[in-house]
Design a binder for these strands. Structure first.
Lengths: 241, 241
DNA sequence: TAAATAGTGTCTATAAGACATTATCTC
DNA sequence: GAGATAATGTCTTATAGACACTATTTA
C-alpha cells in the first residue's frame, strides 16, 4: 500500500514542509477476538487495571506507533494490530483470521482525550484457546459469552463487539469464516454448531450434511483419521484441506 | 455512541491526567462519491492544486476536526464526512447513501506526514449530479469513469476506489443500494442497467423483471406517472415508495 | 434394550438461468 | 413496414427447507 513517490516538482515543497500544529487524535487498534467454547460464542476481554473505566472489561488493544515525522517510519494499521495481538494474547496473525471492522471515532468515547480506534476482529480456533495468555498488562483476560448481557464494557466497546457479531453473521455463508471457529480437526455436528451459533438459527442436520457433502466434493474439506467419542454414536473426523 | 461516564473512582485520575506527547497521526476522511452517467460507473475526483501530487486527481476529503483536548469537543467521523461532503460537493448526507469503508493507514501513503484516512463511499443519484458543485479548493472536480485505467490517483486513492467498487458489488444483491444509483424516477431497464454495471454482468431482461415484480408486490417500488421516451418503445416509469 | 445422536434419503417449494414470444413505439 | 426495445411467459435446473428414516454407539 506504499504510495507512489511524489513528483520532483513536489520535492522543494516537501523539503520545506513542516507539519503544522493542528491538534491530532491518538489512534488505537482494538481487537475483537472471537472463539467458540462450550457451544457459546465468546470474546476475549481484559479487566482494566487503570482509569478510565478501572475494573471494567475492555477489548485488548493499544495505540498505533506513528513514528516521529521523518525520522521513524512508524507502523501500518495491520502491523499495529499484529503487534497488539501478539503482545496481548500471544497469538500470531498466521494462526487467526483477522479483518478490519472499521473506525470508531466519537469524540466522547474516551474521557481522557480524543482517541480514534480502528477495530479488527480475530477468529480464534478453539484448539488455540489454551495457548492464549493474557500478556503484559492483560493479567486478567477472560473469554466472555457474547452477547455479554449486563456486562457493560469500557469505552464504546459494546458497540464494537456488536459490529463484529453482525459482521460474522453477514459473512458466514459467503466466506469460509467457519473454518477459523472450529478446531483443526472437527466433526460435522461441530461445524454445524458453529453455523448455528453464528447465524443464531438451528441448522437442520440433513440439509447441513448436503452442504458439507458439497465441500467434500470440492475438496475444501477431507477425512481425517480417527473418530470423535461422544455420549452416543461416535462421529467421523474431518479437516480443512 | 457516547461513552458512559467514567466511575467516580476515576474522577481524581482524570482531573490530573495530561495527554502525553506521544506523536499522533493526522486523521482524514476521504469520500468515494459514486454515480452512474451514460451507463458508466463514475467517481468524483478533484485535481490537486497543491503538493504533494500536484496536478494529480484525488478523492475529496479533509482532516477531522479533533478539538483541543478538553476545551473543544471536536467532531465525530460521521460528522466530519458530512461536513466534507457538503463543503466539497454541496451534497447533503440526507440526499446520498453514505457508509464507512474502512481505515487506510500505511505509513508512506502521504509523503508530508503520517496521515490515517477513514474512507467512506457515497452513492449519488444521477438526478443530483447537476447540483454537485466543486466547492472550496475543489475548483476542478470531475466525474471519472471507474475503473479509471491509466489514471493514477494521488496517495493510495486507487486502492480506496477499488475497495469501494468491491464493496458495492458485494452489497448490490443483499441491500437496496441500487436505489441510490438511479434517478428518483426510473424505468425497469434503467434499474437493470445499474445492476449490470455494479455486478459487471449483463442482466437478463426477463429474469430481472421477475425480481422487479417481487419488489412491486412488496410495495418497495411503485408506478410513477408518465412514460420514458426512448428510441423505440417507451418504458413505464417507477419510483421507490 | 433404551436412549441418544450420527448419518441418509426423499419430497416439495422457491429461486435462478436460458430463452422464445408478444407488444408498442419511432423512423 | 422495418427496426428496436419494452414487456411477458415458459421450461429447466439448482438450491433450500421440512422431515421421515436408518445406523451405531453408550449406559
Amino acid at each position: 500500500m506504499r504510495a507512489r513517490s511524489a513528483s520532483s516538482a513536489d520535492a522543494a515543497f516537501l523539503a520545506s514542509y513542516k507539519p503544522s500544529d493542528f491538534s491530532r487524535p491518538s489512534v488505537a487498534v482494538d481487537i475483537v477476538a472471537l472463539t467458540v467454547i462450550d457451544s457459546l460464542l465468546r470474546v476475549l476481554l481484559i479487566r482494566r487495571a487503570e482509569p478510565p473505566f478501572r475494573g471494567r472489561w475492555a477489548l485488548p488493544g493499544g495505540f498505533v506507533r506513528v513514528g516521529d515525522a521523518h525520522r521513524h517510519r512508524g507502523e501500518s494499521l495491520d502491523e499495529a494490530v499484529a503487534r497488539e495481538l501478539d503482545e496481548e494474547t500471544g497469538l500470531s496473525v498466521r494462526d487467526v483470521y483477522l479483518e478490519q471492522l472499521g473506525a470508531f471515532g466519537h469524540p466522547d468515547r474516551d474521557p481522557r482525550m480524543r482517541v480514534i480506534s480502528v477495530a479488527y476482529y480475530a477468529l480464534v480456533r478453539p484448539d488455540l484457546v489454551p495457548t492464549v495468555r493474557g500478556g503484559g498488562d492483560a493479567a486478567h483476560a477472560e473469554w466472555h459469552v457474547v452477547p455479554s448481557r449486563g456486562l457493560r464494557l469500557a469505552f464504546d466497546h459494546d458497540r464494537i463487539v456488536d459490529a463484529a457479531r453482525e459482521r460474522i453473521r453477514e459473512r458466514i455463508h459467503t466466506t469460509s469464516l467457519a473454518r477459523s471457529l472450529v478446531a483443526r480437526t472437527f466433526t460435522i455436528p461441530e461445524l454445524r454448531n458453529v453455523y448455528a451459533i453464528v447465524t443464531g438459527e438451528p441448522q437442520d442436520p440433513g440439509n447441513f450434511r448436503r452442504k458439507f457433502q458439497a465441500m467434500l466434493d470440492a475438496r475444501v474439506v477431507e477425512r481425517a483419521p480417527g473418530k470423535r467419542i461422544t455420549a452416543s454414536k461416535p462421529a467421523a473426523v474431518y479437516r480443512f484441506a
